[in-house]
């Protein structure tokens, strides 16, 4: 089965995915957008909890796009695309978290 998929993709040079998986991904992404909106606009949670919830929703949204739309799982064996992505994310987290950490005590008083 796996080989069959690889073959089909090689043969047409296209990515996998069906309309069903796109529709599921789309519905997920809508829901994952509405949840943080509702939480923020109605002040449902404390500030820290709200930030945690909306960040988790954003990361899940990223995963939905990656799995359902960008077909990262369909890539064949030496998964260079995925490896490059992980490498990029490591740099991303280092830059963002490192900047926040370094600059925390430099922030203007509120």
């Amino acid at each position: 089965m796996d080989k069959h998929n690889t073959q089909a993709r090689d043969g047409h040079g296209s990515h996998g995915g069906s309309l069903k998986s796109y529709v599921i991904g789309f519905l997920f992404s809508i829901v994952l957008t509405i949840i943080p909106l509702v939480v923020v606009m109605n002040d449902l949670l404390s500030k820290t909890a709200t930030i945690a919830v909306i960040l988790v929703m954003a990361v899940l949204q990223f995963l939905v796009q990656l799995l359902f739309f960008m077909h990262i799982r369909d890539e064949e064996k030496p998964r260079f695309n995925l490896m490059a992505l992980i490498f990029g994310l490591v740099i991303l987290v280092t830059i963002v978290a490192g900047s926040i950490w370094i600059m925390t005590y430099n922030a203007v008083a509120t």
Partner: peptide
């Protein structure tokens, strides 16, 4: 694959801009 590498550089570009904004 080359395009994925471009996307990774874009991830880093936006990462620096997000870091700047948050700070």
């Amino acid at each position: 694959f080359g395009f994925w590498l471009f996307l990774i550089t874009d991830v880093i570009l936006f990462g620096t801009l997000f870091a700047t904004f948050v700070v």
